[in-house]
Design a protein around this nucleic acid. Sequence first.
DNA 1: TAAATAAGTTTATAATATAAACCAAAAATA
DNA 2: TATTTTTGGTTTATATTATAAACTTATTTA
Lengths: 95, 95
Amino acid sequence: MSEFKPLDPLLHSQLRLAVMSILISVESAEFTFLKEKTESTAGNLSVQLDKLDKAEYIRITKSFKGKRPLTTCSVTQKGVRAFESYVENLKNYIT
Amino acid sequence: MSEFKPLDPLLHSQLRLAVMSILISVESAEFTFLKEKTESTAGNLSVQLDKLDKAEYIRITKSFKGKRPLTTCSVTQKGVRAFESYVENLKNYIT
DNA sequence: TAAATAAGTTTATAATATAAACCAAAAATA
DNA sequence: TATTTTTGGTTTATATTATAAACTTATTTA
């Protein structure tokens, strides 16, 4: 017991973890909302969202709100599973 | 509530977190023990222990076991406090 | 119409984690 | 006893990352 299983490096990152944490409890969230909630810069957020998207942990939809661009994110099943397993592994480190 | 407080980068690292996790429950541990438990390379472990030492999260004592060098590590109060606060902060990300 | 704001993306940089290479001494072996 | 291997690490090089700065394009606002 108490084995130190590897921590998914995609989730073991402050900003990406915060994003996933939000998305898991929210169905979907806009870029600007995530930016405010996580207090990140747009650039950093953009990069990290891309990584989560490429890993298929989240889905990114681009559309328009009125005339302005709108980036909407939601977590995928794969993302949920990865998050849950990350949390399980992490517990062995912190308890 | 559920604020994303910054995660101490010194602890938000797989290997250093594993080391701290062990040291917190063990009074003191030898280099080789930590190496086996964490399944890390000696080089990586050496570097990470140094960082924890420089931050005064752990104390490193060098001596000899018989004729062989012996590196012994133990956590400091500062380390314990940092770990506890890291865990508290982290909880907001994962629950 | 010029300046400011919104909503991002791209790129540059600095920090990090990690393993490879190295070292010194001791122990095993030929 | 010479030499090879093992032990117990440290130092250095590299590749990856996280992050912010700079940039872009369109839209308001003054």
